[in-house]
Design a protein around this nucleic acid. Sequence first.
DNA 1: CACCTCTATTCCTATATAGGACTTGATACG
DNA 2: CGTATCAAGTCCTATATAGGAATAGAGGTG
Lengths: 264, 264
Amino acid sequence: MMQKSLQVVPASKSGGAKAKHRRISEEILSAIESGRWLPGDRLPAEDQLAVEMQASLGTVQRALRSLVQMGVVERHHGRGTFVTGARAQEGQLRHFRFTAEGGTQLLPVYFKIVGIETVRESGPWSSFFGKREDNYIHIHRLVNVNDEFDVFSEIYLPASRFSEIAGMSEATLNGVSFRDFLTERFNAPTINTHQTMACQPLPPRVTRALNVPHGQYGIVWSIGGLSYRNTPITWQRIFVPPSDRVIEIVPTNAAEQSPLQEVF
Amino acid sequence: MMQKSLQVVPASKSGGAKAKHRRISEEILSAIESGRWLPGDRLPAEDQLAVEMQASLGTVQRALRSLVQMGVVERHHGRGTFVTGARAQEGQLRHFRFTAEGGTQLLPVYFKIVGIETVRESGPWSSFFGKREDNYIHIHRLVNVNDEFDVFSEIYLPASRFSEIAGMSEATLNGVSFRDFLTERFNAPTINTHQTMACQPLPPRVTRALNVPHGQYGIVWSIGGLSYRNTPITWQRIFVPPSDRVIEIVPTNAAEQSPLQEVF
DNA sequence: CACCTCTATTCCTATATAGGACTTGATACG
DNA sequence: CGTATCAAGTCCTATATAGGAATAGAGGTG
């Protein structure tokens, strides 16, 4: 039997009224964002959540399925529902990666920080982060891929959110994957990306750093990183000199490992 | 009340046994593949499908949601469920596109076929299509983007499936988008793509065709196109000379326009 | 100690049911 | 004729319920 008026909002004209399963997704997502549950943690069981959220089991399940879909949580039959862990992909680079022609993955094995500074300059990253942000932590790094070749990476981080990084020593930041670093230290996992590529002459500071001829053409690869709720958290530009190694574009959506995919 | 033994398969040990909603997805997908419903057609109503499929409403709805998720069908409140139309994205290029720095999209406006031939050569496309395929229709085209610059495109199609194309005149194929063409004429929409990029010297035939200096570097952009059930249907290589225009990588998954996305 | 069995926990599938909300087209009214 | 109302068709949300299936751990048995 339908319980009277649990269908709370009559939607008043499809205004801001959202479906209950959506509100539950939102609520759980907010809790995760706020750090109430950290990556790796187990959420309460479905039926318990149903009680807490004052919803039926089916509704909670639907909300959780959508969070799985987004890559925010993972569910395991008989074990529980877990916040997606930092290194859940065990070494798999999630949104992009270099591969050899055959498809074997090439891993970045060595990072060397060239410089860290706080800047106010505007550029493509400004529009990515939006108007309100006008201070960036700017980090240049040399990245070696699979002991085969080097690329040059520049990262811009919004200073408002990640100010602590500006004070960190190069030693702390050397050799780390920023993706993992931001996930573990700031609970800011990269959930989605926006990427563009262009072929352009590499700028002099890059050709010098990479030790390739002045004026050499290469790929300028821009990657905007988005966290929960599409909050922009990183903007990165990678300069890739010519090579027979290729950049593989991986679907940016967590949907790829969703069971639905099998249906394809 | 649960009806006795509608829970048909006891799963016998999680062998090939699939959930019912999955089997329904499969069945509908197969019907669409077979052309029983064409792009734009309306499917029977939920409750009617439920009867046909001998499932409850909820189960059918779940199956349909997953098809929406895959981009195979679209559902419209109060109107019905429709097979995703060929040009559903009205001019939006779905999996990749060129954009100006600001983000405005640049459209390919002019195609000129350079040649069509049937070949047996192997290359990166062979592993994409798999062992069984050893004959390809190979089409070279010059593509102008937004009246601004030209790129050189090579497409390989499996001859077994698209043999009719080999006999078509260049006039028929000129100026068409292959994506739309395959959707409309062969009921073979591109649902997913696999993309790689590399910066390399452009081959002589390309530099000649594009009228850029011999040995010019550019982006070699390979795009494998997959249709329903991840069947490979096209393999394309686009040679892009240097430019300040960028290639924007769009999530290859139809999930992007799913309502779930709003939750981010 | 190794192995088996049982049990509690947890997620997974499926059903039947009820009503809300959007769309479209027909009909009635001024 | 234009507009308002209504009804049918369709999808959307939500509930309560029932049982299946995977997992992990406790306890017993040889």
